[in-house]
Simulated assay, not measured.
Amino acid sequence: MTEPTLGRHFREQQSNPQAGADRPGMFAGASHFSMVNPQFQSATNIQNIQNSYHTWNTNDVFAIRKWLKAPDPSTNFVAACDKRTPGTGEWIFSHPQFVEWREATSGTLWIQGKVGSGKTFLSTAIIENLQANQAFLCCYYYFDNRDNSQTKTNARGLLQSLLLQMATRDETVHPALHELYRSCF
């Protein structure tokens, strides 16, 4: 994606949060979603969120991960890191709209482009950049049509993966997810 295209889509997303929702194939089959008391967490709240996690028995953590069956986006991330030439996509870190997005406490950075235009490598560079700063909770996902299990091709896989990334840290699990797991068995 070229820099001007990135800017146009970023502006579209800022002025219309529903931009892209009417595009064919965008979360096909997904319906009846609603948000109750939606809020974005700022980087200053990350420590408070992390303090609410509890260390459980390693078997419980493993069982919860197995139960959720969330696709693992780290396989795509590692594959992209291995293929990416050092320095690729780093132009975005000085792009004014990226800087504005990164410094904001909420918002969406929309990256769109044709197949093979470099979205995966650009996204991977951004993820690496965000992960370098421990103040950020960086959750990510790669839609992947080449995934044989087909779990990385739909909204369900996205939601399962994001839930697992937000609710687990190493050998800790957020109590809400632990309680949900326990209520299902």
Results as ranks from 00 to 15, higher is better:
Q50C: 08
F93I: 02
P17G: 07
D170E: 15
P4T: 10
T5Y: 14
T75L: 05
A104I: 02
H174F: 10
E103I: 02
L122T: 12
N59F: 13
A43L: 15
T124D: 03
R182K: 12
A125L: 09
R8E: 15
M35S: 08
S42C: 07
G29Q: 09
S117F: 03
D147E: 09
A176S: 09
D72V: 00
D144K: 06
W101K: 00
I111D: 11
S34Y: 13
G157A: 01
P4S: 11
G107P: 11
A21I: 05
M166C: 11
C138L: 03
T58A: 15
R8D: 02
E171K: 11
L109R: 03
F98L: 06
L137I: 01
S31Q: 11
P86V: 15
Q160S: 03
D144Q: 10
S183K: 11
C139T: 13
F136K: 03
A28L: 14
M35P: 00
F98G: 05
T88F: 14
H95T: 07
G107S: 15
T108W: 06
A132N: 12
Q150C: 07
N16G: 06
S123W: 04
D147S: 07
A104K: 10
Q131M: 09
A132C: 05
H174G: 02
V36S: 13
A155T: 03
N59C: 07
F62D: 08
R146D: 11
Y140N: 06
F40G: 02
D170F: 07
F27V: 10
A21F: 11
V61M: 02
P71T: 00
F185S: 12
I46H: 10
F33Y: 09
S183L: 10
T168D: 10
A125H: 01
L109H: 04
I127K: 02
E128G: 04
P71G: 00
T153L: 04
A132K: 12
T168P: 06
Y140G: 05
G89L: 01
T168S: 12
F143C: 13
A79C: 00
G25K: 06
R11H: 04
G107M: 14
S52Q: 14
V115A: 15
M1H: 07
E12W: 11
T124M: 01
L177N: 13
Q14H: 07
N129D: 09
F62E: 06
F143R: 07
Q13C: 15
Q18C: 13
E179D: 12
G107L: 12
A155R: 03
Y141H: 13
